[in-house]
Amino acid sequence: MSRLLSTFSARHLVFLVVLLAATIPLLLNIRLTHTASDETKHFYANIDSLPSGSVVLMSFDFEASAFAEIKPLAEAVLRHCFRQNLRVIGLSLFAEGTALGEQTLSRIAREKGKVYGTDYLYLGFRPQCTSAILAIGESLPKEFPTDYFGAATATMPVLSGVTNYDQIATVISITDGGMPTYWVDYAVTRYHARLQTVLTATMVTSFYPYISSGQIQSLIAGLKGAAEYELLLNESGGGGRGLLAQSVSQIAILAIILAGNMVGYLDRRRKWQ
């Protein structure tokens, strides 16, 4: 025990504080009161304004690691799409996102009573994101002659009239990384696709320049974004539950920054003396 304590450093203390700040709030049944930000309202309004029957291409561009954070966001947006009677075409440009994307899409579609092949479709995984994004711009049915389960897509009503990005009302990239950059570079710039993104909180600031340039129409991010979206939808989900843990962790990091400064100040004072 004493050996363990002797190796205990400031770094370990910081880790312990973060661990407690992130886990204890998950055990408490407290919901933070909050309102939706303009960012989330904008995303919501974009989906809300699409006419019934519009096609949404939803790309599940994330890995299993970020699923806990991405899941409430993806579910909230899917619920909104299905409530609006939009046609949802799912795919994944990450091998790992393939099964998780299918599970999420199917579960919410079943919950909303939607029919596979008519209201939604899952195309599965395509390697090499650049060429997949470009190929959809040329011809989606040619790039995906069969769906995730091996069924022919040509006869499916959900794809009727859909050839390329021109017939897709919006592309939504649900991601934990830099994939929206590829969508901007290859789908927006080249084929003038309309793009929205759903992101993990760590990635959000990377994409603000694309919002103000109009290359990405709107975005939502993190558990806070999910909680806000659930508020607008008036449906409960994982976002609201995780918001307290995330907020307490943020305050814990703030305390850590102040502690770091205090320690730094004391060190400097000791040196002066």
Partner: peptide, 11 residues
Amino acid sequence: LAFFVASAAYR
């Protein structure tokens, strides 16, 4: 990442 963000912020 959460732990490393905190330790990086501390320094």
